[in-house]
Amino acid sequence: METFAQSLTSGLLTGALYAMIGIGLTVVFGVMRIINLAHGEMVMLGMFGAFWGQSLWKLDPFLSLLLWAPVMFVGGMLVYRFLLRKIIPGGELNTLLYTAGLSLLIANLALFAWTGDYRTINLSYGQEPVRPFGISIAVPLAIAFVVALAITGALWLFLSRTDLGRAIRATSQNREAALLMGVDVERVATVTFGLGTALAGAAGVLLAPSLYLYPTVGELLIVKCFVVVVLGGLGSVPGAIAGGLLLGVVESLGAVYVSSTYKDGIGFVLFLGVLLYRPSGLFGVGK
């Protein structure tokens, strides 16, 4: 029972970060029909941002979020405005292949600049795990979890309460109708891509103290990220949250009760199953 509670908790903690990466991918898909294969590289850039912030400027990795999230937001908008926008009329497969090229370009530029060495971030605090109710929780992961919840909550408020948020949801539901209602769809798309990139980058910053950093880490993350958004239904934000938590828990329980070597495989099998039998996601909210 204690093992169960322990692995459930660590699954939920990791799952919240998966969810955050997944939300970025899913809002971009919802608004622009782009499956962004370079999303994992955006996470990787966030991780390296936290690393360089700490090693060059003695910046606390978690505080560097305040710097990197806006930088990634602007960077994402520029990528959309100057690179991706002209590809969209070519169709979904063209944008998929274009972002595949972008992904390879970013990952290999990073490999070239920073080499393939594995790096870690050492925090001056939180060496000892906290133990509420006898469950051991790593401090960096706990901080990341709380911040991820706060960001997701803020995003939720933004999407449901503000005009721009409503415009994003409207465009996601029906682009033509939104256009007819006077929504500046192009501006919405630019902002959404910036938002998706910022979410990926922020998740990267938060994950950096808990994971190994290397330039091709994006490959692993992007595949997990697809699992998350497909589980929840492509285009659905609540779906991505549920999918992220589900994947985190399934992996963590699978590692304990099925096989630790095949824990990643469980996610992929689940992914194929959902793609084949419930293409709109487990909760039937996607499209």
């Binding site: 292949l97 090229g101 390879l104 970013i106 990952a107 290999n108 530029l109 070239f112």
Partner: peptide
Amino acid sequence: QVGHLIFYGLFMM
């Protein structure tokens, strides 16, 4: 040694 795929990505785009 590393980064030969930079150009693959670039030319693809």
